[in-house]
Simulated scan of single mutants.
Amino acid sequence: MTDSHKTKTVERSDNFWPHLFDPFKGFGTMVSNFFAPSADASNSKDLYEINIELPGVDEKDIHVDVEDNVLTIQGEKKSESETKEKNYYFTERHYGSFQRSFRLPPDVKTDKIDAHFDKGILKVTIPKKAPAEDKAQKIKIRTSS
């Protein structure tokens, strides 16, 4: 038998199996991103503002909390459509929970945060604390006597 006709043995390698699952590696991230609503954040002189797109979400299913300077927005989307026609019956349901968290800077008034929901957009305004005024002070020097 010539070298070109020799049977190659397939080596079992730990590197083979991970390649089989490569398409599924980011699946958990894709699913969580699917349910994570889009957001934008802005900064002005007096406040920070976060806008989150929540189409199809009912206001009563949205919760906004602040703990340890982390703003968390969570909720659940529930929608159902039903069509009845002469020859068919069709129902679709869409359910999914979501959560977005934002670490807030130290210059915010967490007790003054306001959230307003209108036409599928949640607008969260976060007022800033007034900057501490630096006042010139005379420091008295003490003597040891």
Rank of each mutant, 00 (worst) to 15 (best):
M1K: 13
M1W: 08
D3P: 00
S4C: 05
K6V: 07
T7S: 13
K8H: 06
T9M: 13
T9D: 15
V10S: 08
E11I: 04
S13C: 03
D14N: 13
H19F: 13
H19I: 13
F21P: 05
F21W: 15
D22E: 15
D22H: 09
K25T: 04
G26R: 13
F27T: 03
F27A: 10
N33K: 08
F34L: 12
F35A: 07
S38M: 08
S38F: 07
A39P: 08
N43Y: 11
S44V: 00
K45N: 06
K45G: 05
D46T: 02
D46V: 00
E49G: 10
I50A: 13
I50W: 11
I50T: 14
E53D: 12
E53M: 08
E53P: 01
L54R: 15
P55I: 07
P55E: 06
D58G: 03
D61L: 06
V66S: 10
E67R: 08
V70Y: 04
V70R: 06
L71T: 02
T72L: 01
T72H: 05
I73F: 01
Q74R: 15
G75Q: 07
K78Q: 10
S79M: 09
S79E: 06
E80I: 00
E80Q: 04
T83V: 11
E85W: 01
Y89K: 02
Y89M: 01
F90I: 02
R93H: 01
H94I: 04
G96S: 05
F98T: 09
Q99C: 04
R100E: 10
R100H: 06
P105M: 03
P106Q: 11
P106M: 03
D107V: 06
K109Y: 10
K109A: 14
T110G: 04
A115T: 05
H116V: 14
H116K: 15
H116F: 13
F117T: 02
D118P: 01
L122G: 04
L122M: 12
K123N: 11
P127V: 02
K128Q: 13
K129E: 12
A130I: 10
A130N: 14
P131M: 12
E133P: 08
E133M: 12
E133W: 01
D134M: 09
A136Y: 10
Q137S: 15
Q137I: 13
K138V: 09
K140Q: 06
I141E: 09
R142W: 07
R142P: 07
